[in-house]
């Protein structure tokens, strides 16, 4: 009986896994096709004549600068978001003060803003402080717009940290800073790496803010590489596919790396706990 249950479970799990892995295979096939094959053919048919020059086109379009910009903007914005969000979540969940729920309320309102409502006021603000066409505008915006969701994710975890840990630390004469940086942050390592992944994905794939705030090629990110292949009347979908493959690779690698970190974080905290 138990055996049948497991066989059934694994069949379902494997089926779902195949379903989830399909998009990547599809994307790679997509990137090697011409528009006719993409739209009029079977999506999973092998390309009759693999168009490797789709990739060539992408590299000729000069992805180098874009790639580097994507990397450093993503890293900086993700780092800032995680740090700022952790600090805020810490005071909201662990410290005693009157306005903590008010502050949390304001942060939650940040979740609710549709970006197209914010676009025009934001542009105007950055224009007034001369930050248009300056990567700082992107970094600040990315950092801020990911803060609410990061705080929300951290919230549930910070509440589960036992009070005893803090009490013990204080008796040992530890300061709040030390407690935050040396006890709380390491304890929340698993969830931090989750938020890192989520932040990275968002920042890496974002294009509305970049296109609006940045006009110099020198500061644009990989997502504009996609724009390069959208024409007035015709779009080169194969080349877009190639750009998507090139841009998703680093994310997959980073993701696999951080998954390992999650495991490490868990083992580390398990040892302590």
């Amino acid at each position: 009986m138990r055996h049948i249950g497991y066989i059934l479970l694994y069949t379902v799990l494997a089926f779902v896994a195949v379903f989830q892995i399909f998009p990547i295979i599809w994307l790679v096939l997509f990137s090697l096709k011409s528009n006719q094959e993409i739209f009029a053919g079977n999506p999973f048919a092998l390309p009759t004549d693999p168009k490797w020059d789709n990739y060539l086109k992408v590299f000729e379009g000069g992805v180098g600068t874009y790639f580097w910009n994507s990397v450093w903007i993503t890293v900086v914005a993700t780092g800032l978001t995680i740090l700022i969000a952790s600090m805020a979540t810490y005071t909201i969940t662990r410290m005693h003060w009157k306005f903590s729920s008010l502050v949390l309320g304001i942060i939650m309102i940040g979740l609710m803003i549709p970006i197209h409502s914010a676009l025009i006021p934001l542009y105007n603000m950055f224009l007034n402080v001369h930050l248009i066409d300056n990567p700082l505008s992107i970094i600040i915006t990315y950092t801020t717009y990911n803060l609410p969701i990061t705080v929300m994710i951290l919230l549930g975890f910070y509440t589960t940290i036992p009070r005893e840990i803090e009490e013990a630390a204080i008796i040992d004469g530890s300061s709040i800073h030390r407690m935050f940086f040396q006890i709380i942050l390491p304890l929340s390592a698993p969830i931090l790496s989750t938020t890192v992944i989520i932040n990275m994905i968002y920042n890496w794939n974002e294009f509305v803010f970049v296109n609006t705030f940045i006009s110099s090629d020198a500061f644009k990110t990989l997502t504009v590489g996609i724009q390069n292949f959208i024409g007035q009347y015709m779009t080169d979908w194969g080349a877009i596919g190639a750009t998507l493959v090139i841009s998703v690779l680093p994310i997959i690698i980073a993701f696999l790396f951080f998954s390992e970190k999650i495991m490490e974080g868990i083992t580390a905290s398990a040892v302590k706990g």
């Binding site: 700022i84 969000a85 600090m87 805020a88 502050v103 304001i106 942060i107 309102i109 940040g110 803003i113 409502s117 914010a118 006021p121 934001l122 603000m125 600040i140 915006t141 950092t143 801020t144 717009y145 803060l147 609410p148 705080v151």
Partner: peptide, 13 residues
């Protein structure tokens, strides 16, 4: 956090 959200989200809202 409050400063950034205040200026970049609440003000536009």
């Amino acid at each position: 956090a409050l400063f950034l959200i205040g200026v970049l989200i609440v003000v536009p809202l």
